[in-house]
């Protein structure tokens, strides 16, 4: 009996030493990675169509000139932008005529308002308080756009006021007719 008791005690000792050797494994972890993407979205907003007509109206009495200028303020520029914290940290919006042409003797300009305050972040700044000629050459109209959003729709973002006027000293080159001009806006990294 003494020998049997001794063996059982030895077995118990071995078992206890195994349990102590297996340390608890009580912590685990895993990674989470969230990707914030580059965002560069630009849209035109209007209460109706973004097409509009500017017309130099004929005089009603002989000897008077065409009625000018003609303006339209129906379009607003909305945008959402997320830039990186280094590298390309700001963007601009440029405009250019990509089809059609402005009738001879006239010029087409756009006046850009400051952002209307419907969004948040680093919204852009208009290039000039003065009207900017719209030509077939890409011309910046809003710069210094960072990470921001303007809000969507009319009365959000920047209002564009287009003006068709008679070029000083060019009245003799005016011809009657109708021209269609397409203006393209581009939001791009500077």
């Amino acid at each position: 009996m003494k020998r049997i008791f001794f063996l059982v005690l030895l077995g118990g000792s071995i078992g206890q030493s195994v349990v102590k050797a297996q340390a608890p494994n009580n912590t685990k972890n895993h990674p989470v990675t969230v990707t914030v993407p580059d965002v560069a979205l630009l849209a035109l907003a209007s209460s109706g169509s973004t097409n509009f007509t500017l017309a130099l109206n004929a005089p009603t009495q002989a000897g008077e000139p065409l009625t000018a200028p003609s303006t339209s303020s129906s379009i607003w520029l909305n945008y959402s932008s997320t830039v990186a914290s280094s590298g390309e940290t700001s963007r601009s919006i440029s405009a250019q005529i990509t089809s059609g042409y402005v009738p001879s003797g006239t010029d087409l300009t756009v006046a850009v308002s400051q952002d209307n305050g419907g969004g948040a972040g680093q919204v852009g700044t208009r290039v000039s308080i003065d009207p900017i000629p719209i030509t077939s050459t890409l011309s910046p109209i809003i710069t210094n756009i960072g990470s921001c959003y303007t809000g969507k729709g009319t009365n959000r973002g920047h209002q564009l006021t287009f003006t068709l006027a008679i070029l000083p000293g060019s009245y003799s080159t005016i011809r009657y007719g109708s021209n269609t001009v397409q203006v393209t806006y581009t939001l791009s990294d500077i």
Binding site: T27, T33, V34, A120, S147, C148
Partner: peptide, 22 residues
Amino acid sequence: VRGLSVLTPVASYSATIVFTLM
């Protein structure tokens, strides 16, 4: 994930979630 905004700079943000058994 909450708090995401266009104002958050473009990047990949990583963290480790630790689970501990008590």
